[in-house]
Amino acid sequence: MTAGMQAPEGPFQFLQAGMFTIDSPVWNEPAFWGAVILAGAVVTYVWRLLGVLLAARIDPDGIVLRWVRAVATALVAALVARMVLFPSGLLAEAPLAARIGGLLAGMLFWRFAGRRLALSIAVAAGVFLLLEYLFA
């Protein structure tokens, strides 16, 4: 989502209005900073608001909610796959073998050592660190 995102050309060129980029002087104004944070908060909360309105209208035992649950579950699983296979930032500094190996170790430990969540996360992190040094 972040890497290589470019300002669009054509009809969306107005989005490039130079005064809103971070190197512009308006960024030194506290009021502008406030507006930036507020704007980020609004575009985030609007989806939560929609969630509140929907939650009151959906049957808690119905098929719609089970579908929503399946979507949220698949979405988080996809997020994990993205973080491991296409990492950004610090995680990108670690070799692929460590990212995949750590995750597999944690999943196998969870499955075969009594489904202990905290311990399995610790195993995943430990194997990750070990493989980082082995494959560095």
Partner: peptide, 11 residues
């Protein structure tokens, strides 16, 4: 993605 999560928790 926050929308389904809010629906699930609040439900």
């Amino acid at each position: 993605r926050l929308m389904p999560m809010v629906v699930l928790v609040l439900a």
